[in-house]
């Protein structure tokens, strides 16, 4: 199945999401912030990136921009529960504007995650290749 990079600063949410994704035979690489995610992408090819939006260090919106500037064909799903004055829907709309192929609002149904991941993985784009 697919190689997925999962980026979330919350270890519980990572445990939940990676458990769900591994259950359907995806390989999951985890990162707890955007900087680590970028390091991982230098060394690994992935088919899909799932990232939380609001994280310390480097947030998901910056990560989204950075990834898409380096790997324009990337497939990214953004996840958010909202933060400060920005609610989940607004932040996810922004994420779509920044190039996310799909978005997931927290709290999420695990079945929705599987469905959206399957849809995002449909073969329209090439995988996100590591840097040569």
């Amino acid at each position: 199945m697919a190689h997925i990079l999962l980026v979330d600063d919350d270890e519980l949410m990572r445990a939940l999401l990676s458990g769900v994704l591994r259950r359907v035979n995806h390989t999951v690489i985890e990162a707890d912030n955007g900087r680590t995610a970028l390091q991982i992408l230098k060394k690994n090819s992935v088919d899909l990136i799932i990232t939380d939006i609001f994280m310390p260090e480097m947030d998901g919106m910056d990560l989204l921009t950075s990834i898409l500037s380096r790997y324009p064909d990337s497939k990214i799903i953004a996840i958010s529960g909202g933060y400060k004055a920005m609610n989940a829907q607004l932040s996810l709309r922004m994420a779509r504007g920044f190039g996310a192929v799909d978005v997931i609002a927290k709290p999420f149904r695990t079945a929705d995650v599987i469905r959206k991941v399957a849809r995002a993985l449909q073969p329209t784009n090439s995988p996100i290749r590591k840097e040569a």
Binding site: A15, L16, R22
Partner: peptide
């Protein structure tokens, strides 16, 4: 639903929670 989707890893994930 989580239990169904997580299968055997449900108990591990729930221990974290």
């Amino acid at each position: 639903e989580m239990k169904q989707e997580l299968g055997d890893s449900f108990s591990t994930v729930m221990q974290h929670f």
